[in-house]
Each structure stands twice: as C-alpha cells, then as structure tokens.
Design a protein around this nucleic acid. Structure first.
Lengths: 258, 258
DNA sequence: CGATGTCTTGACGCTTCTCAACGATCGTGG
DNA sequence: CCACGATCGTTGAGAAGCGTCAAGACATCG
C-alpha cells in the first residue's frame, strides 16, 4: 500500500502501469488498450488497482462476474467451500497470473479469492474486455488462448493429485511454484511460500501433517532446505526426479526409512 | 456409422444438423452460422462429421489446434501421458460436450482424445470460430463463456480427488455422469458406462480394484445395482449423501464392514 | 509475559495399494 | 458347435502409506 494513492475513479498512470506490467499475462491487451486511450479513460478501464490486505476477499461465491483480475504483487488463493464443510484450495496465483476465470461459464463466481498477504491486483472489467477485442480477430484469438490457458491450470492440478504419493505431490508443487515465480525474472533457488502448510495440504489433497513431514524428509535428504516458509532448492535434479521426471533405467526410489 | 454417408467435403445437411444438435454446447453458434450460409459453405465449416471407431484417436499430444470438437454420439476420453509411464484420464466427454480445449493456450494439444466406442464428432475449425464472433460482442462473450466453462470442468474434477475417499469419489462420479447424460433428455436411473473400470480408476485416482470394490459395496448396500457396465441408481438420496450432499444433522456414515 | 497461531514430531489405526487367483464374456478359428 | 485365448471384472490377503489424535516447539503480537 505504498503507491496506491491514486483515487479509485482516476485513470491509471499508463507509463507506470506499463513499467510494472512486464510479466503480466494480459499485457498485450493493455498495450492494445492504449491505442484507444479515449475509450479507456471514458470507461475507467485498467484504473482500478485495488490494494488488498492479507485475508481480504477479492470476490465471494455467488458474486457476479464483474472483472477479471491480474495479480500485480502479493499472492491470492482461490478456495471452494464444499458441501461437507471442508473447503479445498483450487489454486494459488502469483504476480502476472489471472484470477476470476471460474465465473466465465455461469457469470457468477463459484469460488472465493482470498489474499494470502497484502496484495495488489489489476481489475479489468469483463464487459470492456469483450468489446475491446471485437473487430480484432487476432487479438480475439489471443484472448481465447489466454482465457483457455488460465482455466487450463486445473489440469496440471489434477495431475498432481492422481495416483501420486505425498512426496511426489510436494516435489511437483515446489517445482511448479518455483517456475511460476521465475516466469518474470531470473532463476532463483530460493522460494518464500506465501501460504500456510494447511493451504498447501488442501491444495495437494493431503493432511497438513503429511505436508510438514514431507518437507522435513526432503530437508533431511538434502534435496531442499526448509526454514519455515523459506525454502531453498539444493538438488533440482533429484527434486525433478521425485516429481516424475523420466528416468527409466536409474529407477532409484526414495529411501523412506530416513 | 449408419447415416454418415455424406462425403467429407460436402457441406452438411443443416436441417438434419439442427435436429440432432439440441443438447449441443455450441448450438447457438451453429444457428448463428446459418445466417452466414455462404461463408459457412465456402469454408466447409460444420460439415465435418468424422466417424470414429472405438479406440481411434481424435488428436494426439503435440498436434496443432485445428478444430474444437463437439461429441455427437458415443463417448470420448482425454488422456495425458505422464512422464513415468502411467497415463491419467483427464475427462470423459458425452454427446453435446466439447473436446479439444486443452490446446487453446499453447496452440498444441497436450493430451490425446480416444473414442471409447464408435462415435461421431462435429469438428469446428478454430480459425472460423474466432472470425465468426468478430463484430458480434454478445456472441463473443458467449463464446468466452462456453470455452471457459469447458475448461472449467477440471475444477470439479479436482474436487472429486481432494481429500475424498474411494466411495465418495465413485458416488460423485456416478452422479456427475448421470447428470451429464440427462442434460439433453429425460431423467433416467439407468446409466451405461462407456468406459472400463481401469479408465474410471485413472480418472478418480484410484486402483481399478478399489473402483470395483466400491461399486460392489454400493451394490450390496442397495444404493445402486451393478451389472457390468450397466448401473442403475436405486437410492439417489443416499448416493447424493455419500457424494457430499449437505446433511448436517443426519450424519450417518457408511457402514464399511459390510 | 502470556496468548495465539503456526509448524513439527510421535504413535496408532485404517483406507487403499499391491500381488494374486478366479470367473465372466466375447470373438476367433478349428 | 465347441474349444480356446483375450479382455474385462471380481474377490481375497497382506503390506504400506497416510490420516487422525495428541503433545510440544517456535514465533508473533498485544
């Protein structure tokens, strides 16, 4: 909440927006939007940078689809409340990624989006987005691709859950998160998890104790270094192997007695 | 393969198409398309009704995104080959549902689509679809919704897998499939599974023996009647309860000793 | 300094996986 | 027509991974 002092109904500073939008999934649409600056100003698109305190909700189940959001800083989790009280975590969204696509089909959000830490998101009104690409077939196709890709992440999630044991799931999770954090920057072995063990557990379909134990085991095996939510990848090769990387001959299962 | 004698490059019989397209997810786009009959004829859109023999592949991993498919008859499964040899089933697609949206993001298919029985699909060229909605904002928004919804199904899949035990997953699976078969028709207690126990298992993240045992248990409890792939729902209420329907007070767990 | 939330570690029981054998169904060929 | 193999489904026994319950360590904050 340092530089978000612009009034909510004042158009955004585009040069600032552009500078901080490099890893953004929707960047090309913003660039395109600048070409119609008048339209944008009139509709107030791209101006809404909402600061979210930790624990605040971006939307709730049942809310009408008003906008698609891009995470600018911080991290967001999407959670669905199941009938039996336990809610499961559908995804984590780091800077540059989309939130809110779950409402595309019905027009209403099925899940809720909660900030894992103080975060900033860029809300792009859905109506404006649909109109923006009208008359631009190439841009329209790109938008379909971006939306399809955003909704696609459920499939990689499924692959983490189906017939994989705890350590495999945890390894896949860490690699996936590391890769997504690196998308916009340089490669780093260090990850700082924005979510609790319980959130990880409900994302991976495990008990939180199992997640804790799994991380400890990977730590003892010198594959990663765990210090609370600070995690350093010490042996990327072995971590990838655990996550299911192809290694037909050298089939060396993890020593589980440790 | 009874009435598919139309040559592959001859435009489809629209009146026939319309009659059999009532449960179709993309129906409104077909109707819209009729308004531009010349365009459609010229491009050969909607004319490609490909008969698929059981076991035939609609597309393979790596194939370029050429078309989005709607299942007209039969059933299709989408499978992704994981690195470690085991492949997991991402979804089953029954008449009226979309196949092929996994390629929206990258432009290439990530998984393969295999016919579970002799099937017919309607292939709609992707390029034509994107152009079709150009200049029609409402239609464009609907297309985004349909695509988003199609890609959305991964999230309901995730909810079947996360922290649910075998019987719950099987109950959810049966109810979901029954509902989807009924989408275009009347309510029926009878389901004929188009897929093997192994396919169900790899969809639900279970061993095939566990699926078989689960079905047997539900059979013994008189909740369903199982005869091979013929399944009849005898007690929909209890089945829904098992699948996680809200029933706070009457919390009666399944007797597992039977 | 105590309270609270978060994470770790231990022990035990149970669901589920694995290995294995058997039965049913179907199509093929003699 | 029946034997035969192949595919598919069922059932059993044992082992193992994971969930549950429980206690304790650690950090943060009022």
């Amino acid at each position: 909440m340092t530089d978000s002092r612009s009034a909510p109904d004042v158009p955004a500073d585009f040069s600032l927006l552009r500078r901080s939008c490099e890893p953004c999934t929707l960047r090309e649409f913003c660039v395109q939007a600048e070409l119609r600056l008048d339209d944008v100003r009139r509709r107030g698109m791209f101006g809404r940078r909402e600061p979210l305190a930790r624990g605040a909700r971006l939307f709730r189940p049942g809310d009408a689809l008003a906008a698609v959001y891009v995470v600018r800083s911080g991290a967001i989790k999407t959670v669905v409340n199941t009938a039996d009280g336990e809610d499961c975590v559908l995804g984590f969204h780091v800077p540059g990624e989309l939130v809110g696509l779950d409402a595309l089909a019905s027009g209403r959000h099925e899940c809720e989006a909660i900030a894992l830490m103080d975060s900033q998101v860029c809300g792009i009104p859905y109506s404006g987005l649909a109109e923006l690409t009208t008359g631009a077939p190439g841009l329209n196709r790109r938008l379909l691709g971006v939306f399809g890709g955003g909704a696609q992440c459920g499939q990689s999630h499924v692959q983490m859950l189906v017939r994989r044991q705890a350590d495999e799931r945890i390894a896949m999770f860490l690699l996936d998160l590391q890769q997504r954090y690196q998308r916009g920057g340089e490669e780093r072995a260090q990850i700082v998890l924005p979510m609790s063990r319980e959130d990880v557990a409900r994302y991976l379909g495990l008990a939180l104790e199992t997640v804790s134990r799994g991380l400890s085991r990977l730590h003892d095996l010198r594959i990663i270094a765990v210090a609370g939510r600070q995690i350093e990848v010490l042996d990327p090769v072995q971590l990838a192997q655990l996550a299911g990387a192809p290694d037909p001959d050298h089939d060396q299962p993890l020593d589980r007695r440790a």
